[in-house]
Amino acid sequence: MPAWIEIQDVRKNIDDFRLGPINLNIEPGTITALVGNNGSGKSTLLKLIMNLANLDGGAIRVLGKLVDGNDEGWKRHVTFQPQKQVGWNAYKGHELKELIAPLYTKWDDRLFGRMIELFDIPLDKRFGKMSPGMQQKLSLSLALPRGTDILILDEPTASLDIPSKALFMDLLVDWMEQEDRAVVLTTHQPEDLRKLADYLFLMRDGKPAGLYEKDVLATTYRRYWISGMPADTLPGELSRSGNELISDNPDATEQYLLEHGIDAIDNKLLELEEIISLLLK
């Protein structure tokens, strides 16, 4: 089965910023998180998927269709929630719903009603008058019920309070159950990554820094506390300080320690945040 989103060799220059070349495929049934420092090009990449800007090279296909082709029908199957909604300020919540809902054949009005109730959103208030958190809740309530195959969320939890964040995760997990669906999201919240992501696509200064299966990434890096650290560089060694050593190949490292009779006092997997910081350095 071809990927639902195919990003091939995509490049985009914006003033001095160079994005790409980026290659990434999004498969149905998966949640992929784009992770990177501020200004690493995540939002730009998402906007390029939505054909909001012209590519300087490469191609993007959504459900097999070139996004910058003449057929714009693919947009019916994609929900895009930008970091900041543009053009929503003058509308009240219920007006936005009336505007958006009829555009999607699978619009789920029950889910919408449920989310409005759970998040306690005042629909008769103008979007521009809502707090950032409320705006995000309304955006999400207008995103999930569209029931599209693909859901693209740019920092969906950035302004949510803790209970709302938990609620959103449950709703998203529910949403993923119904059919074969794919989610692409950007986030700076480790919680989102741990609980939601299957794949992490790392970006640094517009360049890709690897696509990882989350569990593989999470079990690859180990920190060892070693008494009598040898002067030689150990196999798998990534960095060391004092009696601490970080390895990205625990098997090789432990084999070496065993062979040389070196004692590791303790060892522990690195936290996901730590691994990401390491990879984005």
Binding site: E177, D198, E213
Partner: peptide, 14 residues
């Protein structure tokens, strides 16, 4: 479901 367990255990669906 696979997705729900994935969230609870913080492990990917894979």
């Amino acid at each position: 479901s696979i997705r729900a367990l994935s969230k609870d255990l913080e492990i990917s669906v894979i």
